[in-house]
Amino acid sequence: MPLELDISHLHYSQVNKILRDYIEKGEREFILRGVNGHRYLFAGISAEIKAQLYGTPGLDLGAFMRGPEIRVFGNVQDGAGNTMDEGKIVVHGMAGDVVGYAMRGGKIHIYGDVGYRVGIHMKAYMDKVPVIIIGGKAGDFLGEYMAGGIIILLGMHSIYPERPLAGLFLGTGMHGGTIYVRGKVKESYLGLGLKPYALDGEDEKILEKHLKEYCDDFGLDLSEILKEDFIKIIPYTHRPYGKLYAY
């Protein structure tokens, strides 16, 4: 039985302290109700636990965390998964700006749209590869400075029909990692020097694997998603600014 808590009257530092205490005691599943603007929930928590959040968590949900699986029934504000290390955030709604900043591992699945600067500075090493999947559309600077990891942008569940799939400066300065986009993006929207490529067999395998998990999370039909072609964006060099300096 998951432990149910109504946190509406609590300050975030109390909530985290309570969670830590229960985790210490061996509790592994939580349901948090009354979430509204609570910052830093699960920040820095290192444990294999599961949590369901009802409401709108505040800044930096799951920042630096290692392990927790958080499912949010609602939207998340800015900074979700900030420098997250391992674990998973599933959002049954939209997300604010700077999701997965400098993410090092784990997964973030967003059903709907995301804001600006999502997945910037993502990193990876060997088989530790963070993944962000966005069901809706993304703002500018998606994957800026990306050094590793995978971003998948579907553009399907958006509340902004008038907006492009991804904003301007997509992948600008990226020097590692891959961004997959379902459908097409204007080349002028890409960061300097970047080009869209068609997928190869390896890509398709990766994509299917991650999207399958995504579909399971939200009860979606994978074949529906795969109906349209994807493009991928990868760095043209791992040193996009190598020529910037006069030595």
């Binding site: 590793g148 020097h175 600014y241």
Partner: peptide, 17 residues
């Protein structure tokens, strides 16, 4: 640093948060 070998490790001018 979790970045590719030989790439420039650039920290952006601002913290983006």
């Amino acid at each position: 640093r979790m970045i590719p070998v030989g790439s420039d490790a650039l920290s952006p001018a601002p913290h983006h948060d």
